[in-house]
């Protein structure tokens, strides 16, 4: 990656900072992961009979791959709106600590809360990770414009991928259609594993995979919630216990 030096006049214009943010999507392998994930989501939306406009609006307004997949798969498997909403909201809790962690990186004493609404909206795992990498190279007073550009660039990638995945699923043979649907679990597993640095994260991932098949035997409609809370709590307790005296 290469940015103008922090004191370069190129940073004077907010629009230029926006463009540099948008262009920064070239320097992250996570753009490719995002692309692949959203091809999978587009294909999933097609195979579960949602419209293309629905899939695009979900990408734009939800802007969280896991929540979109939970929403599509629960609704498609006949869950009620309330059950889907609960599963989505629990998966989205992780966005709360991400937003809390990201905003101080670009806040200045003059920053108003409403100026950060769009940054909060764009915050998801990809942006969260890349802010830590890119923002030290961006002057503080241009960081909001830069992140607006980065978020918009990532959103364009995801929207294009949603269309491609949707159309591919509509026109491909069953074998290639299933290959596209398999992209989602593979890319989610590996990108989460890559970001799991602490024991609690690794345990939560492993136990979460192992507990779901057990929880699904209950057939409660909240299987993902039950296995997630159980596995996450055990992972947290083990971490505390190891950390203890």
């Amino acid at each position: 990656m290469s940015f103008p030096p922090l004191d370069s006049p190129q940073w004077y214009r907010p629009l230029r900072a926006f463009a540099l943010g948008m262009g920064a999507t070239r320097w992250t392998v996570l753009s490719a992961v995002l692309f692949v994930t959203y091809i999978g989501i587009g294909a999933l939306a097609h195979d579960t009979h949602f419209s293309l406009a629905w899939a695009l609006l979900a990408t734009l307004l939800v802007w969280a791959g896991p929540a979109q997949i939970i929403l599509i798969s629960t609704l498609a498997s006949g869950a009620s709106i309330v059950q889907s909403a609960i599963a989505v909201t629990v998966s989205a809790i992780r966005l709360f600590p991400m937003v809390v962690a990201v905003l101080p990186l670009m806040r200045t004493p003059e920053t108003k809360r409403r100026q950060l609404v769009l940054v909060a909206h764009f915050t998801a795992v990809t942006l969260w990770v890349e802010c830590y990498r890119f923002l030290p190279h961006v002057p503080r007073e241009r960081r909001i414009a830069f992140v607006h550009g980065l978020g918009s660039g990532l959103a364009v990638i995801a929207l294009v991928a949603t269309v491609i995945g949707y159309e591919l699923a509509a026109n491909l043979t069953q074998t290639f259609g299933s290959a596209i649907l398999l992209l989602t679990p593979l890319s989610f597993l590996f990108s989460t594993a890559r970001n799991s640095k602490e024991l609690a994260d690794v345990l939560a991932l492993g136990l979460g995979l192992a507990f779901y098949p057990l929880a699904s035997l209950l057939n409660s409609g909240l299987d993902i919630l039950i296995s997630g809370v159980a596995a996450g709590t055990i992972a947290f307790l083990v971490h505390k216990w190891r950390e203890g005296p």
Binding site: A43, L44, H46, D47, T48, P66, I69, I70, S73, A76, S77, A87, V90, S91, I93, R94, F96, P97, A169, Q174, G177, S178, L181, L182, T184, P185, F188, L189, T192, S196, A200, D201, L203, A204, L205, G206, L207, G208, L209, F211, Y212, P213, A215, S216, D223, I224, L225, S227, G228, V229, A230, A231, G232, T233, A235, F236, H239
Partner: peptide, 26 residues
Amino acid sequence: MWVKAVATAILAGVIAEILVHPPGAL
């Protein structure tokens, strides 16, 4: 920290669900 662990485990549950109860062509 607990919230993050539960969120990761829920994501793992989503991965498992797609494999155990595969949608569409899968």
